Amino acid sequence: MSAGLWNYMFEGLLVTLQLTIFGAILGLVFAFAAGLARLSGNKLLRGMGFAYTEAFRGLSALVVLFWLIFVLPTVFGVQLAPLFAGVLALSLNIGAYGAEVVRGAVRAVPQGQIEAAIALNFTPWQRMRKVILPQAVVAMIPSFSNNLIELLKATALVSVVFLSDLTFGAQLVRASTGNTAGTFGLLLVAYGLIALVFTTLMRLLERRAAASLGRTVPPGMIARIFRRTEASA
């Protein structure tokens, strides 16, 4: 490919990374807000958390993106920047799935430890910050890792609204070169490599979080394969 075509791919890669990283950060905010709201003793907060979770788990991220890009300007006169609209649509969708991860992980913390914290006169905030969340976060990371990869794959949806992500850049390259198999083969490799990097980073984060609690995380599949190979050599 010429330098100009490589630029299409590189610029698209940057947009895809921005969508993934900022979508993950904002999705994490939505996930913790909704997940903890569903555990609240306040009925209003529980209802809001339930409504958000069920609504955005059932809605297509593409439909939400269409609303943010096309409906808001027409009906409400609100025009969002395309990149922000993409981040918001993806984060609302992935945050709803993450909320269930947060809720499940918090509820999985042994009740005895919570009772011990109550016996030590910890306030509800202290119990959450010092006892519950440190343990729950370690349990959340593997599921969040899966959600992150799902978010990465979902970024390709923004190419439908002509936001120049990696998939859109590949379409431009294919249109210029006519090489469909080669272009989309390269696209598959690119997404696979990005996913591998994110998975590795999340695995390292999981190990670090577990180590802070004095725990160990079993080695990943690749590490196990290498160990078995070394043992049989």
Rank of each mutant, 00 (worst) to 15 (best):
P110D: 15
Q171H: 04
G98V: 04
N93W: 15
P73E: 07
R203A: 14
A233T: 11
V101T: 01
L72A: 06
F10H: 07
A81K: 14
A136N: 05
R174A: 14
Q111A: 10
L151M: 10
L28E: 05
A119I: 02
S143N: 06
I132Q: 09
I94W: 02
F84Y: 15
G23Q: 08
I21R: 08
L213W: 00
A175R: 14
A136D: 04
A170T: 07
L14S: 11
M48D: 08
A116G: 10
T183G: 06
G86A: 04
F66T: 14
L213H: 05
D165T: 02
I132G: 01
G23C: 09
W67M: 10
A61N: 03
V29I: 05
A210N: 02
A190G: 03
R129Q: 00
A195L: 10
K153V: 15
T20R: 09
A61P: 00
Q113C: 05
R174L: 14
S164L: 12
A210T: 00
P82W: 03
V131C: 01
N147D: 13
A61T: 02
S145W: 02
R57P: 01
I69A: 06
T53G: 06
W67H: 04
G23H: 10
K43G: 09
L45S: 04
L133V: 09
F56M: 06
T216N: 12
F66A: 14
V106S: 03
R215M: 15
I118F: 10
R46L: 12
L120Y: 00
V217A: 07
T199Q: 14
A190L: 04
R174M: 15
T180N: 08
P110G: 12
S232V: 15
M1K: 10
G95E: 03
F70C: 05
T199K: 13
A231N: 11
S60T: 11
Q18I: 14
A154Q: 06
F84E: 13
V102Q: 06
G49Y: 03
S2C: 08
L172C: 08
Y191R: 10
S60I: 12
G86C: 05
T177L: 00
L163W: 02
A55I: 13
G192R: 07
S91R: 08
N146V: 09
L172Y: 10
A31M: 03
A139H: 11
G23T: 08
V106N: 01
A154L: 05
G178T: 04
F56D: 05
A175K: 12
P134E: 01
A116W: 09
I222H: 00
T74W: 11
G4F: 11
I114M: 09
R38Y: 09
R207E: 15
L193W: 04
A33W: 13
G86S: 05
F30W: 07
A195H: 09
M1V: 12
M128S: 01
V173P: 00
V158A: 03
S212I: 03
